[in-house]
Nucleic acid binder design. Structure first.
Length: 376
RNA sequence: GGGGAAGUCGCAUAGUGGCAAUUGCAACAGACUGUAAAUCUGUCCUCUUCGGAGUUCAGUGGUUCGAGUCCACUCUUCCCCA
């Protein structure tokens, strides 16, 4: 993997670049749609490629390990072979499930024991085991196994959790280095900064992560309950330390405004379930604000869903029709909302990139930011 | 014509003496950030200074401290037999 920076913003840390992988190039800043179980929910791959033009999508180690399981994934030739996606893939390690499935797991030094949410069976995830699974899934970018601690963790817990994540990282790196990719193309391992909302822990973690000299670095444990301003502050603290010549990935974030604020602070990669999940729940993101398509006000609005979008469904279908589909619980409604939102997210980062290259990112951001949070 | 059953807040339901009244659907809003989410939460008779207040269970009258619930009659609907 290689990362080229094409243009850096003078006033702040925003930059435009390209990540080169064996499955193709990823322009940065980039948004990566989440495809937890090997599928971006409600979105066909043709739309993902042609309308949305996703450059890279995620899969999840924990979910794919449980279903379809490692035998199937290996036999299929990894996730690329299994779902037919030929562009880059990134796998989250299951570290987020340590957080989100907190009622069904137990953390120890050795690793984390999960109780399957599907059948209740018990599974031990160790850093070594996670590396082995991520090799089998075969994503271009593998994430280290970490603990994503809750946003309201006290200092004592945050420190303890961060130190465990660091020790797990040592073991991830060792296993990663002593194993080879299974399918003939390169895989990168990204370590993850933790430290909750505590600047000194974040600094300490960023320094530790940077010392690993990985091909890219991630910031985890944000947007998990802490105030947005705290998140921005933590990004600044961490990005002052993480190497400039490696891509920086802010995990699990976020709203359109979060993306622009992250880009301004030097983040190159984002992923979030928000465009897909909120889409399925009837919320549309647009350049002029959000639309709750369930609201009665759209019942007879016979305008295209988004005249500025290049996605076919945004031109062909009207807001009134989409309102009807969602109210009638038609599957097509979920598809259209998901495609629309992802198209918008990819448009937003593409615009950000172009404005960085053109040298007017700050002015562009100042203009669009207030629009994004309006409610239409 | 004879016999039987039933009418509850949009619809459907629960309630057999202490009830502004159960539940589901619908409706109307809100939430959602490395996906246990096509999910979840709230409102849903009227008014409200959110403490309450006022009117309700087909209609009228009655019994009772108290009636959606018991009694009488009226209206309406459904089923069975002619």
């Amino acid at each position: 993997m290689k990362f080229d920076i094409i243009k850096e913003n003078k006033k702040n840390n925003a930059r435009a670049g390209v990540i080169h992988t064996d499955h193709g190039d990823i322009p940065t800043p980039i948004f990566m749609p989440v495809g937890t179980v090997g599928s971006v929910k409600a979105v066909h791959q043709r739309e993902l490629r042609e309308d949305i033009d996703a450059k890279i999508i995620l899969g999840n180690t924990y979910h794919l390990y449980l279903r379809p399981g490692l035998d199937i994934l290996r036999a299929a030739g990894g996730l690329h072979g299994f779902n037919g996606w030929e562009r880059p893939l990134l796998t989250d390690s299951g570290g987020f499930q340590v957080f989100s499935l907190s009622d069904n797991r137990k953390i120890k030094e050795e690793g984390c024991t999960f109780r399957s949410h599907i059948d209740g069976s018990k599974h031990l995830f160790t850093p070594e085991r996670v590396m082995d699974i991520e090799r089998i899934i075969g994503a271009d970018i593998m994430m280290a196994f970490d603990e994503c601690a809750p946003g309201d963790s006290d200092y004592r817990y945050a420190k303890k959790s961060m130190e465990l994540t660091h020790r797990w990282l040592d073991r991830c790196c060792q296993r990663f280095n002593e194993t080879e990719p299974l399918y003939g193309y390169h895989q990168s391992l990204f370590p993850i900064v933790q430290g909750c909302k505590y600047p000194d822990l974040r600094r300490q973690s960023a320094e530790y992560i940077a010392s690993k000299n990985a091909e890219g670095n991630a910031i985890g444990g944000l947007a998990v309950g802490e105030p947005t301003e705290v998140m921005y502050e933590m990004i600044e603290v961490v990005n002052a330390i993480l190497p400039k010549d490696k891509p920086r990935y802010l995990m699990g974030v976020g709203t359109p405004a979060n993306l622009l604020e992250g880009i301004e602070r030097g983040v190159d990669m984002f992923d979030c379930v928000m465009p897909t999940r909120n889409g399925r729940n009837g919320l549309l993101f647009t350049a002029h604000g959000t639309i709750n398509i369930k609201n009665k006000k759209w019942e007879s609005c016979f305008e295209p869903i988004d005249p500025e979008s290049h996605a076919e469904c945004d031109q062909v279908y009207t807001l009134a029709y989409l309102h009807h589909l969602i109210k009638a619980e038609e599957i097509l409604g979920l598809q259209i909302c998901s495609i629309h939102n992802l198209t918008f997210y990819l448009w937003l980062v593409t615009q950000a990139r172009q404005h960085i290259i053109d040298g007017d990112f700050d002015a562009w951001k100042a203009g669009i930011l207030p629009e994004l949070s309006r409610r239409l």
